[in-house]
């Protein structure tokens, strides 16, 4: 059963990878890369259950957090073309 899930995850990762490499616009690529990260995390979680060590789930959660930080940084760069500019900090006030 879990082997089927792992196979399905790997196949969907292939599809997402194709989209992130071909994707006509940057938005396709961003979305594809983000969901590829999610698939990696799911794979770790499922693999933990497959080998009888559900504590991999904790690792998967931490990876999800790290992946999220990366996505936030990319989106910030995308919106402002900068990571620490004063301009938008004044905007937020």
């Amino acid at each position: 059963m879990l082997i089927v899930v792992i196979t399905a995850l790997l196949v969907s990762m292939v599809l997402i990878l194709v989209r992130s490499l071909l994707g006509p616009t940057i938005y396709d690529r961003l979305l594809a890369v983000n969901s590829f990260g999610t698939k990696v995390i799911l794979l770790i979680a499922v693999y933990g259950f497959f080998t009888g060590r559900p504590d991999f789930l904790d690792l998967a959660i931490v990876y999800a957090l790290i992946n999220f930080i990366g996505t936030i940084a990319v989106l910030k760069f995308f919106e402002y073309d900068d990571l620490g500019s004063v301009d938008y900090q004044e905007d937020d006030l």
Partner: peptide, 16 residues
């Protein structure tokens, strides 16, 4: 920018 995002995914896959 795409190269940077892809390198992040590269590291995550290596970690997996």
């Amino acid at each position: 920018l795409v190269a940077v995002i892809l390198s992040g995914i590269y590291s995550l896959t290596a970690a997996a």
